[in-house]
């Protein structure tokens, strides 16, 4: 929910500033009179003053940490050599600039490639499954059936529950000894499954939970997309004798493309960095079986001792670089297909 709000707010702000600037260029060439100029300036000033808080906030909460993180990733900073103040004692920083050493160490370490491999599997399967499920459910709900509102509400429910609450609930359900799932299996005479203790089952479990959490977003987005497809197209297709599958394949899917392109990109980025599900469900375990890149970066800066700030920052920068690359490549691919966004 919050996502959509923040998106639309960002868009509105952008639109306003664009309009402000457009106003000026439209008006100034005609008559450069002082009254007009002042008016243009005041419009301009107004637009910027509206944007200023956003710029300031983004600068403080994103810009500074980002620059600092990139800088730290080029040093050998850890818990024992950073600047710290303990009461009246001040211990100055003693870490040094080491250039690209950290990146070299990370990229030549198998740990990074192992984690990257699993992170990609995790992202692709989560996005693919939740997209497919969301699309199927949206198609099913996009018609007049009894109790449609009820179904829609029920399917959006996972969204209304805070993620950590649902993840903890799932953890209880998965518990090998006292969880509901194994009790049900035992009732059916099936051996208990080590949901979170067996590396493969743990991977299945975390994906299942994340899909459960991700489906409502897909569902809502897809429903919106479906409702924007003109009904005449379906009528015309029906007249021409197109089967249900043909209508879905040639009208629904192309009609959904602008929406699906965006939600797949967003969902991929979120899933790639989905810390809470992994951390709260398995803590990256058993062993490191479900550890994705962000949870490992967390481990470096909060669990190991002394805390490896530089190494963790290097992981963070690499994650950012990977996601940026992905976003750019994905946009290119979409643009080639003729979508604009």
């Amino acid at each position: 929910m919050a996502v959509e709000t923040s998106q639309s707010v960002a868009k509105a702000a952008g639109a306003r500033s664009a309009r402000g600037r457009g106003h000026r260029t439209d008006n100034t060439p005609g008559s450069p009179g002082p009254g007009r100029l002042r008016r243009a300036l005041s419009t301009h000033w107004y637009a910027w003053s509206m944007v200023a808080p956003v710029v300031a906030v983004i600068g403080v909460i994103i810009g500074y940490p980002l620059v600092r993180g990139v800088y730290l990733s080029l040093t050998d900073a850890n818990e024992a050599n950073v600047e710290r103040t303990i009461g009246i004692n001040h211990i100055p920083a003693t870490y040094e600039f080491v250039g690209l050493e950290n990146y070299k160490a990370v990229l030549t370490d198998n740990v990074f490639w192992d984690r990257l491999g699993w992170t990609v599997v995790w992202t692709v399967s989560c996005v693919a499954l939740s997209f497919t499920l969301g699309l199927v459910l949206a198609t099913m709900l996009n018609r007049k059936i009894k109790g449609r509102t009820f179904y829609r509400m029920a399917l959006i429910l996972p969204w209304a529950v805070p993620a950590f609450v649902s993840v903890f609930t799932w953890r209880l359900l998965f518990n090998e000894r006292s969880g509901l799932f194994n009790k049900l299996l035992a009732g059916g005479g099936i051996d208990a499954i080590s949901w979170l203790n067996d590396p493969t089952w743990a991977k299945v479990s975390v994906i299942a939970v994340n899909v459960w959490l991700g489906v409502p977003f897909m569902l809502v987005a897809m429903l919106g997309g479906l409702q924007s497809i003109p009904g005449e197209l379906y009528e015309a297709a029906e007249m021409d004798g197109a089967t249900a599958w043909q209508r879905f394949r040639h009208i629904t899917l192309p009609g959904l493309r602008p929406v699906s392109g965006t939600v797949i990109l967003l969902s991929s980025i979120w899933t790639f960095n989905m810390f809470p599900v992994i951390f709260l469900l398995t803590r990256g375990g058993p062993g490191d079986a479900t550890e994705i890149l962000v949870t490992y970066a967390y481990k470096l800066s909060f669990v190991v001792s002394p805390r490896d700030f530089a190494g963790s920052a290097a992981w963070g920068v690499l994650i950012l670089a990977l996601l940026s690359l992905f976003a750019v490549a994905y946009r290119r691919a979409l643009r080639k297909q003729g979508d604009m966004w």
Partner: peptide, 20 residues
């Protein structure tokens, strides 16, 4: 480092018990 010695064991215990 006494406390940090545990984390590698935790990881390998799970790997051994999970048959990895």
């Amino acid at each position: 480092q006494g406390n940090a010695l545990f984390e590698p064991i935790r990881l390998q215990m799970a790997n051994v018990l999970g048959g990895k």
